[in-house]
Computed example of a mutant assay.
Amino acid sequence: MPTHDARPSNPPSGRIHDKVAVVTGAASGMGRATAERFAIEGARLVLADLDREKLEAVVKDIQAVGAEVVGVPGDVSSEADVRFLMGEAVRHFGGIDILIANAGVIPEADLASATVDLWDHTMAVDGRGMFLSCKYAAAEMVKTGKGAIVCLSSISAFAGQKGQAVYGPAKFVASGLTKHLAIDLADKGVRVNAVAPGTIDTPAVAKLGKEGIEKVISMHPLGRMGKPEEVASAILFLASDEASFITGAVLPVDGGYLAQ
C-alpha cells in the first residue's frame, strides 16, 4: 500500500509562502501529497474532497505542523458545491491564488463493458468537475489580475491504452481544457497548466493487484511507479512564480512513458 511522506527531497523554498491554494481531491493520493507539500511551503490551504472522514484526517495532520488549513467536503461535479468551496476560500483567506484541480475517478473499462452510467459519472467528475473548479476559482483570480491553475491530466490523455475507454477520454478533456483556458485567461493574468502523471503509487492503483501493478511498471522506462510526492513537486513548480512564463503546458511526470 502507498505511504505518504510529506517531507520533500529538497528543503522548503517558500515559493508559495502565504499563497491561498485550493486543492480538490485532497483526501488521498496525489491530492494529499500536494496539500502536504504546499503546507510545508507555507501556503494557506482550502482542501476539498467527497470523503468527509478522510478529509478531516488530512486537515488535522496538516494543522499539526502549524499550517493554516480549512476542509470543505463536497462534490466537484455539483455547481453549488464548487461555488461554496471557492466562497469558503474567499471568506477565510480573502481570495484565491492557486487552484489544483485534482479530484477525479479512475474507472477501468473497455468499450464492451463500459456503461452509459459509468461514462456519465466519469465525465461528470473528471470533466465537469474540473471545468467548474476552474471556472469559479478563475473568477476570483481575475479580480486580482493574477493566479495559477494546475489541472491533473494523465498519460492516458496522450497514449491509447487497453481498458481506458472511459477514463482516457476524460483526461483528454483535462488536457484540452488546460490549453484552451490558458489562452482564454492569459490576458487576465491567470496561468493554466497541467501535469500528466504516469502510474503513481496511490490507493487507486493499489486496487490493480500485484500482477496488474507489475504490468504497468514494465511500461515505464524508469522501471518503477512514481510517488505522489514526485507529482506534488511538479505541481508546486507550475503553481509557483518560477513558472511565470509557462501557460498552456502539460508536463509529463511519467518515468519516460510518453518518450517511447
Rank of each mutant, 00 (worst) to 15 (best):
L50S: 13
L208R: 11
T202G: 04
A27F: 02
N193V: 00
E211W: 14
L55G: 05
A26R: 09
V150E: 05
D51G: 06
L47W: 07
V192I: 05
E108V: 11
A114L: 04
R15Y: 13
V250H: 01
G176H: 06
S233M: 06
V253I: 03
S244D: 12
M225P: 06
G209A: 07
I98R: 07
G176M: 07
A33Y: 02
G94C: 11
T199A: 15
A124N: 13
R83Q: 10
G209V: 05
H17L: 15
V173C: 10
R91I: 08
A194G: 03
A196P: 00
A194E: 03
W119N: 07
A139I: 10
V23T: 02
P11A: 14
G29V: 00
E214W: 13
L99Q: 03
T144H: 15
I246P: 05
H220D: 09
C134T: 04
G209R: 08
T3V: 11
D49I: 02
T144E: 15
K179V: 04
P221Q: 12
F131K: 09
D117Y: 08
P197Y: 01
F237V: 00
F84S: 14
V125Y: 04
V76W: 03
T115C: 04
E41C: 08
H4L: 14
Y257T: 06
D75F: 06
G94A: 10
R191Y: 03
G212M: 09
R15P: 09
G189E: 08
S218I: 09
A26T: 01
L238Y: 01
M123G: 02
E214L: 11
A159Y: 09
G129T: 01
S13C: 11
A67V: 02
V23Q: 09
P252W: 00
K171A: 01
D241H: 11
E56H: 14
D184S: 13
E214Q: 15
R191Q: 06
I246E: 10
A48N: 14
R83M: 08
D75R: 13
P73R: 12
I98F: 07
Y167F: 01
D75N: 13
V173M: 13
F172A: 07
V20L: 10
A234N: 03
E68P: 04
V142Q: 11
D61F: 05
D18L: 12
P197F: 00
R191E: 07
G104W: 05
M86F: 08
A139M: 14
T3R: 15
R83K: 12
G248F: 03
T247L: 04
I155S: 03
V23D: 05
A64T: 10
K19G: 01
A6K: 14
A243D: 09
A35E: 11
T115V: 04
P11M: 11
T3M: 14
G25R: 05
D241L: 08
Y167A: 03
E53Y: 08
A157Q: 01
A206T: 03
I98V: 05
A137S: 11
L222Y: 12
A43R: 12
I106D: 13
L177H: 05
A174H: 03
D75G: 07
F237E: 05
A57D: 15
A239L: 02
